[in-house]
Amino acid sequence: MKNYLIVTDTTSAMNGDQAKKYGIELVSLSVLIDHQEYKDQIDISTEELYQKLRDGCIPTTSQPNTGYLQNLMEKWKSENYEAIIVITCSSDLSGTWSGFNLVKNDLEMDNMYIYDSRQIGAPVMDMAICAKEMANNDCSVAEIFEMLERKSANVFSFLAPLDFKQLARSGRLSPLAAKMATILKVKALLYLKEDGSCVDKFAMSRTGSKVIKTMIEKFKSANVNAQDFRIYISHADNEELAIKAKNLLQDIFEGIEVFVNKLPAVLTCHGGLGCIAIHYICK
């Protein structure tokens, strides 16, 4: 077993209990509400964030505080790990990757390797868990990075907001466009671009069934199957819809592993209550 520390952040959809189970260090992003800063999963729970949204608050997220990172990384440095592997969300969506690199250089931590996953949400968690398993099996840093690159090249992420209110509140959609979409009862399917640069429109329809059909067609075109892939469904206080999606996907892709968890704060703040994210990623 390699003496490696595997690190990821809370954009991965991993919670504290899961991090303890797998022996992974979980770094919190900041959630900002009414000029108050909270460490995700430490100062504010997912359920508390849901309640803030119900109360009409407009939360935002930001990369981990530099002082917080400095304290964590000084501790890691003192623990003399053979290697520290940090797996962050897409550097185009968050400054977390840059923040780690800044403190790494300040502390001269030559044994730290920081990987920009170009993803967000559950695929990042999947990468971190696999990295930990490989470290436990005596794999080298190079072998772990080969795995990370393979997964980054064989992943796709959808985000389906229940409505457009939070997208308008967060500035991702104009209030007029949100109002028109609501009046017309338009359903939207968003996706993370393959290079991890931004979330964009994948499909829009007046019916939810057509949106689902479009998503399934994408899965089939990528040859998603039970032997080579697994699926993650993350939800923002909408477990009923997530379970329905799980059952549908398992009916279509017989034998495939489908995991359901809660959406990370960074996606909940933009997608709003009720939204779900669906990801496929290679094993």
Rank of each mutant, 00 (worst) to 15 (best):
V141T: 09
E254G: 08
Q227P: 00
H35M: 08
V258S: 08
G56L: 01
E48P: 05
I114C: 07
L263M: 12
G95N: 12
L5S: 08
I24R: 04
F259P: 00
D116G: 02
A135H: 02
D43C: 07
V27R: 06
Q250G: 13
I129S: 06
V199S: 02
V141G: 01
C57N: 10
S91I: 03
L192Y: 04
L102C: 14
G16Q: 13
F259T: 11
E239D: 15
R118S: 07
N105A: 08
T11Y: 03
S90Y: 07
K283T: 12
L148N: 00
Q250F: 04
K21W: 06
S140K: 02
L267I: 10
S209I: 10
E133D: 07
Y113D: 00
Q70M: 13
S234K: 09
Q63I: 13
Q70Y: 15
R230K: 14
V155R: 15
P59S: 03
T182M: 09
A265N: 02
S94L: 15
S157N: 09
T88F: 03
T10R: 11
V258T: 05
E79G: 05
K185P: 10
G95M: 13
E108Y: 12
L162A: 14
R230S: 10
N65R: 13
K165C: 10
S98R: 15
A131V: 02
D92N: 11
Y280Q: 07
A178P: 05
A188S: 10
I212P: 00
E240Y: 12
K244D: 12
C275G: 05
T8D: 03
Q70R: 12
V103Y: 00
A142S: 15
